[in-house]
Write a protein that binds this DNA or RNA. Structure first.
Length: 938
DNA sequence: AACTTCACG
DNA sequence: GACGTACGTGAAGTTC
């Protein structure tokens, strides 16, 4: 068919596909020879998805993937610095470039490139030709440089966001229509492509000017009329540079291509060629999928030479097929399965229960998997239907006796020669522990993923299965529903439950087979084995122990807060002249800024006024200008504080007291925080108030049992000490060695004030700077924190860098490392990936600061983890229990007579926790406190 | 479900 | 006056 009216041309920006694929996926290599193929794999998946998605009503009649060829184009001849600051292509991406062309051809899609021109120019040329022939064009890309082509039958499509980009979207981005986009780009320039533009003028200003003067030439001619001196000078002085910039950003619609639109007609994939290519690449899943789609057998998989590693995946991993799962209903079958586990030396295990709260959950069933595809489910606590009016439902038929099954499982689960593999093992560990079984030894795929991929993605099973097995597990929602009508797992029919539960064990085993050898390749085996995996039993025991909370104390506080809130609400209504919901920032903002006339209200992206504490605090200072508003803001601040304490703490904590134990059992996520820190949930016991006097009293409700004391030990300034060590700051190290006040020392160095003349205010500023450095300081941030002018804050920072030159070095080195490797590392080898480090725009700033902070925060997290892992053995002989961790603090419950001994032993464990792996050049110091409650101990 | 606010280190 | 900014979390409440 000749291209003409009614035809629809799709132009895919090939380079964009490749780079997106490269950055979205972890570095994947071909099993047989180690060839890097991650980007090719992603590229093929995207292409396949594109083909599948492009079918249907608005299907293209013609399509092509357009690539860049070489790096030298006619633009380099116009301007030698064009794209000069681009990083070199990553080592492992280069060999993949030709493969992406091959892939395109294998899919039987036209594949075009042209020396001396960019893909964008070819796209422009084809788009022009297609329009002239009366057809429509869709460009599959989100690149802003292509937006100038939009309009008149040409639109773009962002495949990532699944969103069309038409004239409106272009206008939203550039503030002008597509026909003026190049004018705006010429003025604004582009740091990524090294387009100079007009210094000091960005997209916003450029759009403003173009809209005022009509077009770029008119603007340049009449630049002298511009009132703002900076803009005027920038335009007048750089007119030539701006005209050059326009030439650089303008796409060439007349590239000398040697093919025609007719050559791009859609063709069906040649199934054999395509399967052959995919098989050569060893993309098993995609090969299988494509084969399935065309109802044909996939070619035999390429033989991979056997590795010595026990956990190398089987050569032919069978597909995940729930129909093949076994339901174990008798002792004989169970024994057979357990014998297989003994013979193999490992077994994947998963538990099903009635609740997500491990302390309340009853065991409903156990699933096992010994080899990919071979999984079984042992139903143990299923009941029939909904039960009768009296709530009693009967035990379902066809289940083994609960105790008999556990008696068979116990010796295997506790057998030192059989590895138990789980996903989020802490959960199953606790369930079994509450049934008298201490599971050991273990491996945990969630923690393996965390050790290897922290910062790249989550580590939940659904995400891992999707990403590494290309399989979407049966959602639990389909079994138990959601919301109000949700049922517990014991009510699920055993057949359905078998498919779901056995699949989880199957997936876990497959993930483990993939991850286990990879831990070595990613060089995080030690991290996994010494910092992640051993946390499971330690945390499980802490969580099961729980902390004693006096609900009566909390209840009394709640009542007192309720009264206070009611009083404040009356007062607030009176000042406002009308009652309103004080808890609604929206209503508060309208009253404060619209009705009461406070000026300077700033609306956020949702159009609501910001009413955060800092904003309200500013309003309270308006006593002279707007006394009513000042008073209102002050009362709202009081209300907010009390309301927070009541709802989040005194009310909520009471509901978390376990009826069986009378204690509060938090849950720590080991793989939650990117940096290696733990996170505490349900309830969060890592953010119990302490900074305000009023809030601190909540800690009085955290008490010790009779004859016991609460003991708290916390690292003093651990992050600053780590900073002093890693950044090699001699003055700071010396100060720590001498046990000096570190903030006072910093202040003295920075402001030339002798220590004996130090004032609290100067020390406070130095303290803020010390913390700022850990967070990846910026003038803006410090200025806001200290409420001083930005220039002054910048002055402080400059001076700090002068006095402690190691800091600057550390920051530059860390960011440089992150850019090169896409991750940063702690002293203990923990990797934190920083994929955003090469982002442009504001994301780059975030990524930089996060990269600077991560090794410090992460090392502190590593150290306290090491202390916690050693703690049970260290305090083993003492009547003491470790209960809580709050990032740099450990809380124990100890018999009164053993308090001093506990402090001695625990302190030594914490202070020596970095050794012997890391010998810090600063001492670690631990402060201790004790008392009847956490409030007294802290 | 997204956004805002605020509690902690 | 290109952009928007301290790092890392979780929970509760309101709004859509």
């Amino acid at each position: 068919m000749a291209f003409g009216k009614g035809c629809h041309l799709h132009l895919i920006d090939g380079s964009a596909f490749i780079f997106r694929a490269y950055h979205a996926l972890p570095p994947l290599t071909r099993k047989s020879d180690g060839l890097p193929v991650g980007a090719v794999a992603g590229f093929c998946n995207m292409l396949w998805k594109y083909i599948e998605d492009a079918k249907g009503a608005d299907a293209p009649t013609h399509a092509a993937v357009i690539f860049d060829k070489g790096s030298h184009t006619f633009r380099n001849d116009m301007y030698d610095k064009y794209k000069a600051n681009r990083d070199e292509m990553p080592q492992d991406l280069r060999p993949q470039m030709p493969l992406t062309r091959e892939a395109t051809k294998a899919f039987n899609i036209a594949c075009e490139e042209l020396a001396g021109y960019e893909a964008d120019d070819i796209i422009a040329t084809l788009a022009r030709q297609a329009r002239e022939a009366g057809g429509r064009v869709t460009i599959i890309s989100s690149d802003k440089d292509l937006m100038q082509l939009v309009g008149g039958g040409v639109e773009m499509f962002d495949a990532m966001k699944n969103r069309a980009i038409g004239v409106e979207e272009v206008e939203a981005k550039f503030g002008v229509g597509p026909d003026r986009v190049i004018d705006v780009q010429a003025l604004a320039g582009d740091s990524v492509d090294n387009i100079p533009g007009a210094p000091g003028i960005g997209v916003k200003t450029a759009a403003l000017l173009i809209n005022e003067y009509g077009d770029l030439e008119t603007l340049l001619e009449r630049a002298g009329e511009i009132k703002q001196p900076k803009r005027r000078e920038s335009l007048v002085e750089n007119a030539d540079q701006i005209r050059l910039s326009k030439q650089l950003v303008t796409l060439d619609p007349q590239t000398p291509i040697t093919f025609t639109l007719d050559d791009l007609e859609i063709r069906e994939p040649l199934v054999e060629t395509l399967l052959e290519f995919l098989n050569q690449m060893e993309f098993r899943t995609l090969t299988r999928r494509v084969a399935e789609k065309f109802n044909t057998e996939p070619p035999p998989a390429i033989e991979v030479t056997a590795s010595t590693d026990a956990a190398t995946p089987a050569k032919d991993v069978p597909p995940i097929t729930p129909e093949n799962y076994v339901c174990i209903r008798d002792a004989e079958t169970l024994t057979q399965w357990l014998d297989q586990a003994r013979a193999r030396g490992w077994v994947a295990v998963d538990t099903e229960t009635t609740s997500l709260d491990e302390m309340q959950a009853d065991l409903v069933g156990v699933s096992l998997c010994i080899e990919a595809g071979q999984a079984a489910y042992i139903p143990l606590g299923h009941s029939t239907g909904e039960g009768d009016l009296f709530g009693g439902s009967e035990r379902a038929e066809g289940q083994m006796d609960f105790d008999a099954a556990l008696a068979l499982l116990k010796p295997v689960l506790e057998d030192a020669s059989i590895l138990k593999i789980g996903q989020n093992m802490k959960y199953d560990f606790k369930i079994f522990a509450r049934n008298g079984i201490r599971v050991a030894p273990i491996d945990d795929t969630m923690l393996m993923s965390y050790a290897m991929f922290s910062g790249l993605h989550n580590h939940g099973m659904d995400a891992l299965s999707d990403r590494y097995l290309n399989h979407q597990p049966l959602p639990i929602k389909e079994l138990i529903g959601s919301g109000k009508s949700q049922i517990t797992f014991d009510k699920v029919a055993i057949d359905t439950a078998t498919r779901y539960a056995a699949e989880d064990a199957d997936i876990t085993l497959r993930l483990w087979q993939q991850f286990k050898p990879r831990l070595h390749r990613e060089q995080v085996t030690t991290v996994y084995e010494t910092l992640e995996r051993p946390m499971v039993p330690v945390l499980a025991d802490m969580e099961m122990a729980g902390v004693k909370v006096d609900a009566q104390v909390l209840s009394r506080m709640s009542n007192a807060f309720a009264q206070k809130l009611a009083g404040l609400e009356d007062e607030i209504a009176q000042i406002a002249g009308t009652p309103f919901n004080v808890g609604s920032p929206k209503q508060l903002g309208e009253i404060l800024f619209d009705q009461m006339g406070v000026e300077g209200g700033k609306k956020g992206k949702t159009g609501a006024y910001g009413t955060g504490a800092d904003v309200l605090e500013d309003v309270t200072t308006l006593e002279d200008v707007n006394p009513q508003a000042a008073k209102l803001a002050a009362r709202v601040l009081d209300w907010r504080q009390i309301s927070k304490l009541k709802s989040t703490y005194t009310d909520a904590l009471q509901t978390h007291v376990n009826p069986d134990t009378g204690r509060v059992h938090t849950s720590y996520s080991i793989a939650g925080a990117n940096t290696g820190r733990l996170a505490s949930t349900d309830p969060n016991l890592q953010n119990i108030p302490v900074r305000s006097e009023e809030g601190r009293r909540i800690r009085e409700a955290f008490v010790a049992g009779p004859g016991m004391k609460v003991v708290s030990l916390d690292y003093s300034q651990i992050e600053l000490r780590i900073l002093a060590h890693v950044a090699d700051l001699p003055e700071m190290k010396q100060a720590f060695k001498e046990g000096q006040d570190i903030h006072a020392m910093t202040a003295s160095e920075m402001f030339d004030v002798p220590l004996d003349q130090m004032t609290p205010d100067i020390r406070r500023q130095a303290k803020a700077i010390n913390f700022g450095v850990i967070y990846g300081i910026s003038g803006f941030g410090l200025a806001r924190n200290l409420r001083i002018p930005r220039a002054e804050a910048q002055g402080f920072i400059d001076r700090y860098f002068e006095r402690f030159p190691g800091i600057r070095q550390y920051m530059d080195d860390t960011v440089g490392f992150a850019k090169e490797h896409k991750f940063v590392q702690t002293l203990f080898g923990r990797k934190i990936h920083t994929p955003e480090i090469t982002a442009k725009g504001p994301a780059a700033g975030f990524a930089k600061r996060a990269a600077i902070n991560a090794p410090i925060q992460g090392a502190a997290a590593d150290i306290i983890r090491r202390a916690m892992i050693r703690m049970p053995a260290a305090i083993g002989g003492l009547p003491a229990t470790m209960l809580l961790q709050v990032h740099d603090e450990l809380i124990f419950e100890v018999e009164e007579g053993a308090v001093d001994d506990l402090i001695t032993v625990a302190r030594a464990t914490m202070e020596g926790a970095a050794e012997p792996v890391v010998k810090l050049s600063v001492p670690l110091v631990v402060d201790a406190g004790q008392g009847a409650s956490w409030a007294e101990a802290h």
